[in-house]
Amino acid sequence: MKNEKTQVDDHGQKCYAFPNKPTPGMPVVIDETKCTGCNKCVNICTTDVLVANPEKGKPPIIVYPEECWYAGCCVAECPAPGALTMRHPLMMRVHYKNKETGEINRV
């Protein structure tokens, strides 16, 4: 049962009056266990989709996701393999077909 007075849900999460996030919301996904917080991605991004974490050494923060141009320069620059993955938004995922079997898949 929800605690109506403090707006906390069953999992103890506070419920905020967030506006809708712009779409797409996460052009790059950061694996925080691998990210070293070096900010090379922040430096290379041409539109400042990512900003440096105010706390030094912590992963960067995606503040302007809707401005991403999907160049992937951030991923190319990242020195920690797997820490940063670029993801095209769902409506841009292209299909391909196995020439032999005819099986159709999506990237």
């Binding site: 141009w69 999907y70 160049a71 992937g72 320069c73 991923v75 190319a76 670029m86 095209h88 292209v94 299909h95 391909y96 077909k97 196995n98 020439k99 032999e100 898949n105 999506r106 990237v107």
Partner: peptide, 26 residues
């Protein structure tokens, strides 16, 4: 521009193989 990571590498990671598969045209 915008092909190395976003297309070449990401598509390969998703299973696309240019020697075997045909990429859809839209």
């Amino acid at each position: 521009g915008r092909t190395k990571i976003p297309v070449l590498l990401n598509y390969a990671a998703a299973g696309f193989d240019a020697q075997r598969d045909m990429l859809q045209n839209y």
